[in-house]
Amino acid sequence: MQPQTTTHVRPADAGALAMDPKRSFQGLILTLQRFWAEQGCVILQPYDMEVGAGTFHPATTLRSLGSKPWKAAYVQPSRRPKDGRYGENPNRLQHYYQFQVILKPSPPDLQDLYLRSLAAIGVDAALHDIRFVEDDWESPTLGAWGLGWECWCDGMEVSQFTYFQQVAGIECSPVSGELTYGLERLAMYVQGVENVYDLNFNGLEGPDKITYGDVFLQAEQEYSRHNFEHADTDRLFRHFKDAETECRKLLDAGDAGERHLMVLPAYDQCIKASHMFNLLDARGVISVTERQSYILRVRELAKACGAAWLKTEAGGMSGGTK
């Protein structure tokens, strides 16, 4: 089923405008959610912690491990403190949205599904040049890698498409397909807007119109100040260490031999450590050599969590947790 498009919307029909993927940012999100729901995905809500990318959500990282089939889609606010530009750059944000789809095992028609999702949000493949350009994805902090592409629409990268081969240092068996849509970029493209802050958020016009800038400009300015100038680095170093220690503690405490009973709380601490590292990196207090060792420390946590996940029911262990 195709979502509504502008052709059959009456100007007065504010509800339809608000839902139109070509007119509103929220419409784009709603259309993608609906499309992937129709493909049998569970539509999750964002994970309630600061993460650098949708991949960090346990629904991707942990669920891509083990043999249990899994299909999910969700929006994930992503924070990259270093990319902040005080709201002055039309393309760069320290907080932005990713739309994440994870399908395990990867279905044979994943490329077609992806192209159909683009059609659903109004990208016409007879008019636009859609391309799959090699991009080997790797997340050193998650100990993960996969092969796939950047998906280009008329020269613009609008999504990443990856077949996970390894996550948390563990071979994926079976392989999951991961799609990540850069929502702001995609919206800028379909709305024909050159500055992210000019995106129409709610699809309305005149006094009722809310732009992306109305929602996020102030936040970008404030967080840029925080990330680059004021984040207390001593505290961040301390928090990094605390999260690392806590993660290890929880993994030890939850270890019941054949089974593991506390992976998710431990993994939260791994996410936290990763975010602390990103903030420290933005403050420019981590030298190149130290950088490597911090990445390695987070990776060790991720690996330990992944190994523990395999000892749980959702990690494919049968018989249920006690």
Binding site: P105, P107, Y163, Q165, P174, V175
Partner: peptide
């Protein structure tokens, strides 16, 4: 090279 799909189990 890579593995994919259900067979990759």
């Amino acid at each position: 090279s890579m593995r994919w799909g259900a067979a990759s189990a």
